[in-house]
Each structure stands twice: as C-alpha cells, then as structure tokens.
C-alpha cells in the first residue's frame, strides 16, 4: 500500500493514536474551553498538559471532564461523547443537553477537536456519513460544533485503511461544514489550514516533504520552522 511504502521509504516514525491525542492536547492554549468529539478526540482528556488549566466540555452535559477512571471505579452515569467512562475534575458541572448545545452553538466553546473521514484543502470537513445504504449515518454534535465552536481541529490517521489520502482537494463524502478546520493532527504530521494552503508545521522523524506529499492530495508547503513530530511513549 502507498502508505506503508512511503513510510518505509522514509523510515518515518508514525505516531500511535495515543500520541496523536497527546500532541493535539499539548497544542491547546491555557484557559481554553474545549469540546472533545467522539472517537480519538475524547482520549485527549488522558493527556492534558499539567501546566495549563483547560476546561473540557462534553456534549452530553459536562464541563470539567477529567481523565479515564482507575479500573474498577467506572461510573456508568459518568461518560463522554464516545460513551466511555470518565472522571470529573473539581469545579466541574453537569447540565441539560440543550445547555450543552447553547454553549456550542452560542459561541462559548473556544475549540472543538473532531475526527474526520476527509478534510479538504480549504478546511471543509466530512465526518458524518459514507453514504453506505447498509450502514446508518451518525452526525451527533459534529455539525453543531463545526458551526458554533470558534475553532475546529481534526485528529485523524493521515490515510485511510486502504492507504488513500484523507486530506483531499475536495471532499467526496457529504460535508459536515465548509471551511471550518484550521489545524490537522495526524500520525505523520501537524498541518495548519491557511489562506495560502496547507502548511506543514511538524513531520514524523524520517519523513520527507515529498514522502508526505505522496499521501496528501493538495499541495503542501513546509513551514520555515517545521519541526519533528514527536511525543512520549504512551
């Protein structure tokens, strides 16, 4: 597969899913109110930087989401968007679903971290349906977050399981929203979506821009200070 070939050619050090979550979590500015979407983004709660105060929001009526509980202390009535058990930090609160979305839709959430099927060069996001008639679509809060959060970042594998680019010129799946994604964290790179196109801020060790470009449809440019994508072993 293209992905494996390119990675092998470049001997790139791919990030694990936990490391992608860690990397995104460590980009979040101090003092932010941040919604974590279903899937990989909800795991960011386990990797928040300790030197910052960041309040995590969950669409099911929680502010102050903490990391996963110790085994044996899970509470089935304390869960996140992925329906996984969580903890609540001191200062946290519970509220009705409609207020959770007043926060989202009313512009009170600084940042939403979401998963994606595809992201376009312009920051269009597709993450709710593959249009498979046998496989029901699921939109959840994605369209609300895309429309209402001040910023949207995406966490995703760089390519599909079949090795096809997920960062594309134009989304082939139905859109969640147009021109909303500003930053993309993958297992191979950190990419900013800018007016001048996609700018690579960090790349996995051993990967070249040409190698990354093979796995990405739109043209990439390298940030002048492009660094190495790295994270602790997690």
């Amino acid at each position: 597969m293209a992905m494996e070939a390119a990675v092998q050619d470049n001997a790139a050090k791919k990030m694990t899913r936990n490391q992608v979550a860690w990397r995104a979590a460590n980009e979040i500015p101090d003092g932010s109110y941040v919604n974590l979407g279903i899937g990989l983004p909800t795991t960011c709660a386990n990797f928040m930087p300790e030197d910052r105060e960041i309040v995590l929001h969950s669409e099911n009526g929680i502010l102050g989401v903490g990391p996963a509980p110790e085994p044996g202390t899970e509470d089935p009535e304390l869960i996140n968007a992925s329906k996984d058990p969580i903890t609540l930090v001191p200062g946290g609160s519970f509220f009705v679903h409609s207020d959770a979305f007043v926060m989202i839709r009313g512009g009170h959430i600084d940042l939403a971290l979401l998963g994606a099927f595809e992201i376009s060069e312009k920051g269009d996001l597709a993450n709710w349906t593959t249009e498979n008639p046998k496989f029901p679509p699921g939109v959840g809060g994605a369209m609300d977050l895309a429309a209402g959060a001040k910023q949207v970042w995406v966490l995703t594998d760089h390519v599909t399981r079949k090795g096809a680019p997920k960062i594309v010129n134009s989304c082939s799946y139905p859109l969640t929203a147009k021109q909303v994604v500003t930053k993309i964290f993958t297992d191979l790179a950190v990419i900013d979506v800018t007016d001048k196109g996609l700018v690579v801020r960090e790349m996995a060790e051993g990967l070249t821009l040409a190698g990354l470009q093979e796995l990405t449809e739109p043209e990439l440019t390298l940030a002048p200070d492009c660094g190495i994508l790295s994270a602790p072993v997690l």
Partner: peptide, 15 residues
C-alpha cells in the same frame, strides 16, 4: 425510517 438530526438541533427543537 430514520430522520437524522444534528444533536444540538435535536435538543433545541425540543427546547
């Protein structure tokens, strides 16, 4: 039949 509604629109329609 499935009517898929964004979650915030769903809660706001009931609100």
């Amino acid at each position: 039949e499935l009517e898929l509604v964004p979650q915030g629109t769903l809660s706001e329609r009931m609100r």
